[in-house]
């Protein structure tokens, strides 16, 4: 099953609707990395509220996604991780190192706004 990717302002938002297979996850990662370039996006939000399991493969794929989009100029934030899922992930010893996480879509957008604003200011200073 494919995950719809919405474009909103400078951001791409991918809302996972149901359990994903490994192939679906890889496809999502590749699609997002490609579209970040196509739309010159500054941020990516992956909403995982519907995921009831995040195992080592899912975590690794999301981590790779975040690192790859960062190299292409967009910050990724994972939103909607369920408390039980967060608990199982840490018990399993999985870390989303270097990847931002937020409670939900609203928080994720707020996080990206704050990052992008700060980034923008840096660029202005460099230009001036």
């Amino acid at each position: 099953m494919t995950v719809p990717i919405l474009k909103q302002r400078d951001y791409l938002i991918a809302s996972i609707q149901a359990a994903l297979t490994d192939a679906d996850l890889k496809h999502l990662r590749d699609a997002l990395v490609a579209q970040v370039g196509d739309y010159r996006s500054r941020g990516v939000i992956v909403d995982v509220t519907a995921l009831d399991v995040m195992d080592s493969f899912a975590v690794r794929t999301l981590r790779d996604l975040a690192h790859m989009t960062r190299l292409r100029g967009a910050e990724t934030v994972i939103v909607g991780i369920q408390p039980e899922v967060a608990f199982a992930m840490t018990q399993l010893g999985l870390r989303l190192e270097g990847v931002a996480a937020a409670l939900d879509l609203e928080e994720g957008l707020a996080y990206l706004d704050s990052r992008v604003k700060r980034g923008g200011m840096t660029r202005q200073r460099l230009e001036g």
Binding site: A19, D22, D52, V53, M54, D55, S56, F57, Q82, P83, E84, V85, F87, A88, M89, Q91, L92
Partner: peptide, 30 residues
């Protein structure tokens, strides 16, 4: 992992424990 979670819920496990079981199944199956 979905079958595993279902069984856990049927046996009255908490959501947290059901998630731990489903995650373990996912790793083993992979």
């Amino acid at each position: 992992r979905q079958r595993g979670r279902l069984l856990a819920v049927e046996l009255g496990y908490t959501a947290t424990q059901a998630t731990l079981i489903a995650t373990a199944i996912s790793e083993l199956a992979r």
